[in-house]
């Protein structure tokens, strides 16, 4: 598959409203530059993210998916991220079992104050995926045909 030179990866980031989203906001306030190919979706808690969102994201043309939440213990809903931790440890391995490169699905704890960490994580993930090239797996027929044109 010839990778078009100026190909920009499409990365989806589910950011928990209380920590990571605030961290991303802080990064913007401090004029920190992070790659714009990351699309942020605000979720009330990282445990609101349904595993099906991840499969659908890869289907609908995303090349990488991130789930970011508060550090264990900081969760606004007390135990949300403990469930997230278990859920996405298993999800990452199940996707790996089905052939998705584990680096394409990243789950990290980023608190409201860690604007720099948000920028570093997002930049690192974006470069990683850019090196890997577009994701061909799980694609819906509509997107496969569109790429074929």
């Amino acid at each position: 598959m010839s990778v078009k030179e100026n190909w920009e990866p499409k990365i989806l980031a589910f950011c928990c409203n209380w920590c990571t989203y605030t961290g991303a906001d802080l990064a913007g306030l401090n004029r920190m530059k992070y790659p714009e190919n990351v699309h942020v979706i605000r979720v009330p808690c990282s445990s609101r993210v349904n595993p099906q969102f991840i499969i659908r994201a890869f289907q609908k043309g995303c090349d990488g998916v991130m789930v970011c939440g508060c550090h264990p213990g900081d969760c606004h809903y007390a135990t949300g991220n403990y469930y997230t931790r278990r859920r996405f440890m298993l999800m990452k391995r199940l996707l790996e079992h089905n052939g998705i490169d584990p680096n394409r699905f990243v789950c990290r704890w980023i608190s409201g104050a860690e604007a720099a960490k948000f920028r570093d994580v997002v930049t690192q993930v974006s470069n990683q995926i850019k090196a890997m090239g577009p994701n061909e797996k799980f694609r819906e027929p509509y997107y496969l045909e569109k790429e074929a044109e």
Partner: peptide, 15 residues
């Protein structure tokens, strides 16, 4: 169910 409960000192991979 395993995903219906949690443990404080589960393995930590996402730090």
């Amino acid at each position: 169910p395993v995903l219906g409960e949690y443990d404080l000192n589960d393995r930590e991979e996402f730090m």
